[in-house]
Design a protein around this nucleic acid. Structure first.
Length: 755
DNA sequence: TTTAGGG
DNA sequence: CCCTAAA
């Protein structure tokens, strides 16, 4: 089996996506085989659609092509299933110590069927075993919790940050049994730990069955103890994490090394080592400078990124690593895993389901991390859910091509933290585990055979249709700002406004300004910054139209892609308690595509509040992020690329809200709160944008003389927003917007701003 | 590191 | 947007 699957996987990238699926279908007869093939095929072919997919494709170097294929839809679903299955399967395997079966699979495809039946028959037994194991795990978990608490960790920063970082580190953990998660948040954390050993072992290549000897686990005091046993590397890593400072240098080096290797990790043979390295590497990510992060990013994905956001980079890199690791892992062990997976996932359905899977498959049952189950229920999934107890549906909207379905919320890893505030802080090890957990989820897909989707976070639809919900949110949103006008109503009105001018741009894509475009660039670019007002402006204008068109087309394309994906991710994260100010809720930024602002209502009145963030931008950012508009000659002679990412209306609104909340000048805070997921858009960018907004707002006051056409962008920004900007500026004593507000204004600010 | 400003 | 000085 392995060989075939592997081959397929390999082929996947090269061959067209479409082909594989079809092939898989044909083979449908054999469950397992087909299944694997499909997965593999999916990974190879489909992946591109998802972030993870994209990444993988990048990593793989495959290519490009694959774009928008819907293929992903069906395939994706399968992928999800696989994941679920994998998790379960691992347990079952180890627990059962069914090695017997495994051999059978490898031996022959045909055998598979027989084997499968056999397996199915045994399934019940296995399940029983699992239950027992689970029970033990729970015990263990409880123990771990205690330990974790004792350990107390330094986890410093806001939970969400940690989570994100940590996540990167440990990806591939086996997913805890959903049941646990669902039941309680508190314990949830633990399960991951339990799983960890498993994963590690698998990665290592030796399958240690934690499950196999449940008693042992039980005996062990804590999950931590288990780790060492599993992999020495792991233990060291943890230590390294805790004492990051000490080993920093060393780890960094390791990381680099890893990075290089990582590219090739895909190769099956090397699996074990890479995995270990990756772990350590990840741990060290925190310590890396932005420069190093970029390097790491490049080595990981084979391309540069313009993103400056450290957190974002870390996430991306860790994701990439995890993927690679997973891929490697899969290569090594996937045969067994897959077999088990199948068994576990859907015992009954397998027979019948398998066939159906390819097409509809909803199932995905990823285990949700604790809460996270989001379910959009799709018709097909029910059965599965029944089997497992949980069905999470596709994490990804991707699975289902239907964009229409609003996806309920999924709690992201961060969300998780939020959910279990107390525990999170307390547990040193626990925190790690959690992170890991989340990571696993996040991780998108795997190169090798395994799939994986990343969506820890929830996806929501971008489409306008989805908006209603959002709107509601807005309406409900606390109006601290006094943004009376803003709420949802704003949205509509804005839209209308937009229509006037560059409406198109603003519309779905939501970009505010038409003037600068990516394409406009090169020629422009040179002159671009350099160009002085007079000349430059004219030029810009001229280009403007063309550029707009291009831009529009582009945005449309992008929107379309999104649509395909159809989802936006929202993340809820826990805010660090801010002494001075309490944050109730924020608007969420979503992708460029959407105009809307989502608002998260304050969940807890207490110090901790949750915010929503848009992560989706991450995805896009990366891929899209690369948009380089122009290259600018640097003083030294190098040419530096200048990227232009038009601000979306949503972003602007978010920024405004941020200013209203945090005050002007608190760019870093705003960044963290509302733009943390974005990646591009640094605090500096926010500041610049605000400055521009101020200018615009001021400009608005002085009605452009008819003769002079002020910059068009003024038109793009809704008057009410500008008014609000002005208001805020005045209020905060920032540069007074208009004439009178502050005396200071008259002098410098004004003259300067004034053209 | 973050903020303010200039280009 | 980018870059850099200042805090």
């Amino acid at each position: 089996m392995l060989e075939p699957t592997d081959d397929k996987s390999d082929e996947g990238p090269s061959s067209t996506t479409g082909e594989q699926p079809s092939a898989a279908n044909k083979r449908g007869a054999t469950d397992r085989l087909v299944y694997k093939l499909v997965k593999v095929g999916d990974d190879g072919s489909v992946l591109p659609a998802t972030e993870d997919e994209v990444f993988q494709s990048l990593v793989e170097g495959s290519s490009g092509g694959r774009a928008p294929s819907y293929i992903g839809g069906s395939d994706v679903n399968e992928d999800d299933e696989d994941e679920d299955g994998s998790d379960g399967s691992l347990d079952s395997n180890e627990d059962d110590s069914d090695g017997k079966e495994d051999p059978s699979f490898p031996s022959g495809r045909e055998d598979l069927v027989a084997a499968r039946q056999k397996l199915l028959s045994q399934l019940e037994v296995v399940d029983t075993m699992l239950l027992r194991v689970d029970a033990e795990e729970q015990q263990r978990v409880s123990v771990e919790d205690q330990i974790g608490t004792q350990l107390g960790h330094e986890s410093n920063s806001p939970g969400y940050l940690n989570a994100g970082d940590a996540i990167g580190d440990y990806k591939r953990l086996r997913r805890p049994n959903p049941k646990y998660f669902d039941s309680d948040a508190g314990t949830d954390v633990v399960p991951p730990a339990t799983t960890v050993p498993m994963t590690l072992s698998s990665s290592v290549g030796e399958l240690i069955a934690t499950g196999t000897s449940p008693e042992k686990q039980a005996l062990q005091p804590s999950g931590l103890v288990a780790f060492p046993r599993t992999t020495s590397g792991w233990a060291s890593q943890q230590s390294s994490i805790r004492t990051a400072g000490t080993q920093r240098a060393r780890t960094v080096v390791a990381q680099k090394t890893f990075a290089r290797k990582s590219n090739k990790v895909q190769v099956p043979g090397s699996v074990v080592v890479p995995a270990v390295n990756s772990m350590s590497n990840v741990a060290s990510l925190d310590n890396l400078s932005i420069r190093e992060l970029h390097e790491a990013f490049r080595s990981t994905y084979g391309r540069d990124t313009s993103v400056k956001d450290k957190h974002w980079l870390k996430r991306q890199i860790s994701t990439g690593w995890s993927k690679q690791r997973d891929a490697a892992l899969n290569a090594g062990a996937h045969a067994q895993l897959s077999s088990h997976i199948d068994l576990k996932l859907r015992p009954e359905q397998q027979l019948s389901a398998e066939q159906s899977l390819p097409s509809s498959t909803a199932a995905t049952a990823m285990v949700s991390e604790r809460d996270t189950v989001n379910d959009t229920q799709e018709p097909g999934t029910n059965g599965v859910g029944g089997t497992q107890g949980l069905v999470t549906n596709g994490v990804d909207s991707k699975q289902s091509p239907h964009r229409g379905l609003p996806l309920p919320v999924i709690s992201p890893a961060e969300g998780f933290d939020a959910s279990t505030p107390g525990s999170v802080n307390e547990m040193g090890s626990g925190g790690v585990q959690i992170a890991i957990f989340g990571e696993v989820v996040n991780t998108g897909k795997q190169v090798g055979g395994k799939r994986q989707r990343k969506p820890n976070r929830r996806y929501i639809e971008d489409e306008g249709e989805a908006r209603p919900g959002t709107v509601l949110a807005n309406g409900s949103r606390p109006g601290p700002v006094g943004s009376a006008g803003f709420g949802m109503s704003t949205r509509l009105s804005w839209r209308t406004v937009v229509t006037n001018g560059p409406a198109d741009l603003i519309g779905q894509s939501g970009t505010l300004r038409g003037s600068t475009l990516r394409n406009s660039s090169q020629t422009n670019s040179l002159q671009g910054q350099r160009t002085k007002p007079s000349n430059g402006s004219l030029k810009r204008k001229a280009q403007g139209r063309a550029a707009k068109l291009v831009k529009m087309a582009h945005s449309a394309a992008r929107a379309a892609q999104h649509d395909t994906e159809g989802t936006i991710r929202k993340v809820k994260f826990r805010l660090p308690a801010v002494p001075g100010r309490e944050k109730d809720g924020w608007y969420e930024l979503n992708r460029d595509a959407g105009d809307q602002v989502l608002c998260l209502l304050p969940v807890s009145s207490g110090d901790s509040t949750d915010l929503l963030q848009s992560l989706d931008s991450e995805n896009g950012a990366d891929a899209a992020g690369e948009q380089l508009i122009a290259t600018v000659p640097t003083a030294n002679g190098g040419t530096r690329r200048k990227h232009h990412r038009p601000w979306t209306l949503r972003e602007v609104m978010t920024l405004v809200e941020g200013v209203a909340r945090c005050g002007g000048g608190k760019w870093a805070d705003i960044k963290k709160l509302a733009f943390s997921s974005v990646g591009y858009r640094t605090a500096v960018d926010l500041k610049d944008k605000w400055r521009n907004l101020l200018r615009a707002s001021r400009a608005q006051l002085y009605p452009p003389k008819q003769g002079e056409r002020k910059k068009q962008f003024t038109a793009a920004i809704p008057a009410n927003i500008l008014a609000r900007v002005r208001e805020l500026a005045a209020l905060q004593h920032q540069v007074p917007p208009g004439a009178g507000a502050a005396g200071s204004t008259s002098r410098n600010g004004r003259s300067v701003y004034r053209k």
